[in-house]
Design a protein around this nucleic acid. Sequence first.
RNA 1: CGGGGAGUAGCGCAGCGGUAGCGCACCUGCUUUGGGAGCAGGAGGUCGCGGGUUCGAAUCCCGUCUCCCCGACCA
Length: 597
Amino acid sequence: MPPGSSREDGVRRLSALFSKTLRDDPADAELASHRLLVRAGYIRRVAPGIFTWLPLGLDVLRRIEAVVREEMEAIGGQEVLFPALVPKEHYATTGRWETYGESLFRLRDRRGGDYLLAPTHEELFTNLVKGEASSYKDLPLILFQIQTKYRDEARPRAGVLRGREFLMKDSYSFDLDDEGLAGSYRRHREAYQRTFERLGLDYRIVSAVSGAMGGSASEEFLAPSDGGEDTYVSCPSCGYAANIEAAETAVPAASDPGDHPPIQILETPDAPTIATLLAAVRAAGIDVGASATLKNVAFTLHHPDGRTDGRTGGRTETLVVGIPGDRDVDLRRLEANVGGATVQPADLDGDDAPAGLVKGYIGPQGLGAEVRYVVDPLVVTGSEWVTGANQPGRHAAHVVMGRDFHPSGVLPAAEVRAGDPCARCGTGLELARGIEIGHIFQLGRKYTDAFALDVLGPDGKPQRVTMGSYGIGVSRAVAAIAEQSHDDKGLLWPAAVAPADVHVVAVGKGDQMAVATRLAEELEAAGRRVLFDDRGASPGVAFKDAELLGVPMILVVGKGLAGGVVEVRDRRAGTAAEVPVGEAVAFLAGGGGGPIR
RNA sequence: CGGGGAGUAGCGCAGCGGUAGCGCACCUGCUUUGGGAGCAGGAGGUCGCGGGUUCGAAUCCCGUCUCCCCGACCA
């Protein structure tokens, strides 16, 4: 008997349902999904980023979970369940006890042992497989779990969209070689496409940066939504799409660095910014725009280096990045491309300021060996710039890359803007926001190396296993669906995840309640999941709640009953049809009312 | 961590030196039933916490904690 049923007929009755709707919006909710999930009585907040699932919300969560599980099993995934509470040792092996930083919930047991609430389970999966799999015959292998995860987010937001406790499906593939890994990756990619289609989510697959996880190929599944936290670019012409952190844009052609006038030093007092610089060089007779200046921004990089012996480990370096002066640095993009290091703006005023860097007047030419100089891809060999002269009050013009300076590398650091040309076809890129609902990685051997995970090959020799890692945010998907699927009246659940198939409402003081009760029971017996508003509330309340709750079909037993008809409403389409009472159950159970359970 | 805002009933809010209030929700009774009903009665509060000023503090002062929003952060 489902929660909220008052009889053992399977019908879920609102009079007995624990969840209650709120007339007013909760004051702390900004996004529609958060507001509506709280108002409709699906979730309640316990602490920042920590929520209780009420009966209807739990129902939606479980429905999503079931779809995810089915699709994982369909590609041969085998379900396991790891503990959420794990001892430090497992994460110390890979250094993540340290490198995961402040987002890791750490705690201590009564004996002083360190534990953590797992934010992700690569280590445990790898270790488990090391203990259980010993032959190439055990591979390929896909294991998954649907588990509560913990991350001490700096700023949880928007209800279950970004919580500190959340439900996630994570799976891991173990293969003998790169080809096998590519196959496991592709199977996951296809399973994710099927999963999100079934969940009724609009999504985009975008190229991603693998970041601190290590590994190579990586794609994200983003649900387009203004409330999303990820920005991605997409090309309307060729279909290229990428997270902005991984976005590539067309770059200017390289040219011969020899074909330029010699460097000219300009006196530019009090011109430490691009705007003041432009005015100063104009006074010197050089009239250029901001895009012809080279802005050199200094950062301090902290490399954790996977240390396991203490918090103070790691290595620090000064990085100077050259980008066109008309653009800002995109710190997220830069950080996503520096291999797990943290990036902070360098302090050029303090006592520890790196030598040779003159604030406001940094140039790429003649920098000391103690700083690493790199350029954004937009800065190419043969390009000529107005830039700092590394002396207070002086800039240099006609500074040419490949002649006057030679960066040690290229790192994407400049902001990407709407309209920037697509790297593949040159069309102007579009920018949009999305919610990350899935992420697939080819991890490679980062974790199997750390744990020395080998199996014996057909030749009897040990072979290092290669891994993939794949996640779906199950609780986040509830918010993502709500975010994409609502109107001003309330939620609009896709049939596959709705907490019921039919919401039955009785309005009127005649036989309506009796007839509605009978229809609810018959519908339930016919395999429809029924939510029955048996409260006898006034019509306004009953209708508003039905719309707020978002069940796909609403059956109204009301004034039409006198004429022998009831009304069937399609919540999403906003349409309504009158159906003879005797045909109502067949109408709703006959395939037109959503999938059979 | 930086910037902004807020802590008063389950939810949304008012009150800003003189007995703790309103709307919704909740309980009882009667009426009402196609768009968040009406009447009558009722229950519910250490006004975030600590100190101070005052005859008297939700209200003024100092401190502190917490929460929300934006940014930083974030497989």
